[in-house]
Design a protein around this nucleic acid. Structure first.
Ligand SMILES: NC(=O)c1ccc[n+]([C@@H]2O[C@H](COP(=O)([O-])OP(=O)(O)OC[C@H]3O[C@@H](n4cnc5c(N)ncnc54)[C@H](O)[C@@H]3O)[C@@H](O)[C@H]2O)c1
Ligand SMILES: NC(=O)c1ccc[n+]([C@@H]2O[C@H](COP(=O)([O-])OP(=O)(O)OC[C@H]3O[C@@H](n4cnc5c(N)ncnc54)[C@H](O)[C@@H]3O)[C@@H](O)[C@H]2O)c1
Lengths: 223, 223
DNA sequence: TCTTAATCGATATAATTCTATCGATAAAAC
DNA sequence: GTTTTATCGATAGAATTATATCGATTAAGA
């Protein structure tokens, strides 16, 4: 029997953590069930969207009462791979790198930063959130030994490609990139860009439209 | 004559900063022109996509040689509203807040953080990247006086709604939210969520599929 | 017990977004 | 000077994604 490939859109994938956060909140408040209708109220999209998204995780609801929250949480986490926390290397102990190191909730999102690397001699050897900053040269050896699959790029754009190359050579399977540069990566390695500027671009454009609309009146701006 | 409303998709808006970064890089290297074909090589989508995106900014190219890079940069920045830098307030002087304060490139992206607020008495009065942390109570007065339109939320999820409410009451027009909580906001105010976990979710899911595919062989996983 | 109302699950339709095609144009090659 | 090639700009078509509809199901109320 041919195992049918379930197509999961990127959009759906990106909505799942939104649901998860709300669901964990409700779970802490001891609520047991929720309907798609109720869940959708928290967002600016509809209940059908929510139901369709939850469907891909294999969740099953009951008519009239909805879904069991604990089931949904488990299903979403399993679907995303967040039930098993993955170890990760972080390269770049700068402003952003420090923030990521200090983020307490990554374990909820399946991520555990186990080591930090930098190339600045002034930073190497110092400790940030109880982790020693190591020279990049140590990465290949450690990656193999510790079976680390995820590499986080938090260096300047100019250095990003070089860092990724080292990561790939070290056996890293997935790269989470915070630098604004487009990176080249061999086939079979996962690359995901976390670009703040994308989000900022949407905000800026909307604000520009809003402000323009106010000064010159009757300037149409799509919202 | 009816001014036709140009529909700009969110997807297009989010790709524009990607182009911008590459273009500014090429500009520094004194390259004068680029074709959509060449630009698209940097990304995992095609040249037609690039051309269609650039079109919305009003850019005009020349057959055989492509677009003048300086024109493209100007057009994109104008379209996003990044040619005029907007002042912004940041609330939450924690790990992430500090990283944002220390980010040198925001001026390139039309953003200038002019003040920082927190509610922790231990932090109030301290200086971070040469900016004094102020109590949240001071925001309403300052916002009106300084005509600040953008508010950045970098507090814990539990406090985010409360902070946004103060921002809105202070006359903030656009909110850039880093907390994972869904926020309620009145009609007419812009809300943009910068959620790292969305990006992480895509990465995690892909990695999970990759790893599963390896252990049990012949498990199909959509990529 | 029977009716009502809310919700799920599946299917169908609509909207959006991406990709391909083709003539026009401008530079380069011949 | 003519041909060739690369690219733009516009339009048409395909694919993807979001939304609506409808019967089935289950709990609650009459
Ligand atoms: N700070 C932010 O809020 C923010 C926001 C969005 C994007 N980013 C991006 O994240 C990246 C880091 O930003 P930042 O503000 O932390 O910069 P930063 O300058 O504070 O830190 C960069 C760190 O990377 C290290 N580094 C540079 N080249 C290296 C190399 N080849 N190998 C190892 N380490 C190297 C530096 O020594 C430094 O410690 C940049 O690409 C930036 O554009 C930052
Ligand atoms: N650190 C990261 O890398 C990271 C990544 C993704 C998302 N986030 C999100 O960003 C937010 C901040 O994260 P963080 O790591 O900086 O947390 P943090 O605890 O280091 O900082 C939070 C800051 O907000 C302040 N604060 C709390 N309630 C406040 C209120 N009502 N008014 C004013 N200030 C208040 C606290 O005093 C503290 O200084 C969180 O919602 C977190 O989920 C952080």
């Amino acid at each position: 029997m041919p195992h049918t490939v379930i197509e999961v859109s990127r959009s759906t994938l990106k909505r799942l953590p939104l649901y998860l956060h709300v669901l964990e909140d409700l779970h802490r408040q001891k609520q047991e069930y929720i309907s798609c209708t109720a869940l959708a109220l928290k967002f600016d999209f509809g209940s059908i969207q929510v139901r369709k998204d939850l469907e891909v995780t294999g969740a099953e609801g009951t008519a009239k009462i909805g879904f069991r929250i604990s089931d949904l949480i488990r299903n979403i986490k399993t679907f995303l791979g967040w039930h098993n926390v993955q170890d990760a290397f972080l390269v770049g102990a700068g402003n952003l790198g420090k923030a990521l190191l200090g983020y307490r909730d990554f374990d909820l999102y399946g991520l555990n930063i186990v080591a930090v690397f930098d190339k600045d001699p002034a930073k190497i050897g110092t400790r940030i959130f109880d982790k020693e900053v190591m020279p990049v040269e140590k990465m290949p050896g450690l990656a193999a030994r510790m079976h680390v699959n995820i590499g986080i790029v938090a260096v300047s754009a100019i250095a990003a490609q070089e860092v990724v190359n080292v990561m790939v050579a070290s056996g890293i399977r997935a790269v989470w990139n915070f630098a604004p540069a487009p990176l080249e990566i061999p086939q079979g390695i996962i690359l995901e860009n976390a670009r703040l500027t994308q989000s900022l671009a949407v905000l800026s454009n909307k604000l520009k439209c809003l402000l323009e609309e106010e000064t010159k009146e009757s300037v149409p701006c799509p919202m």
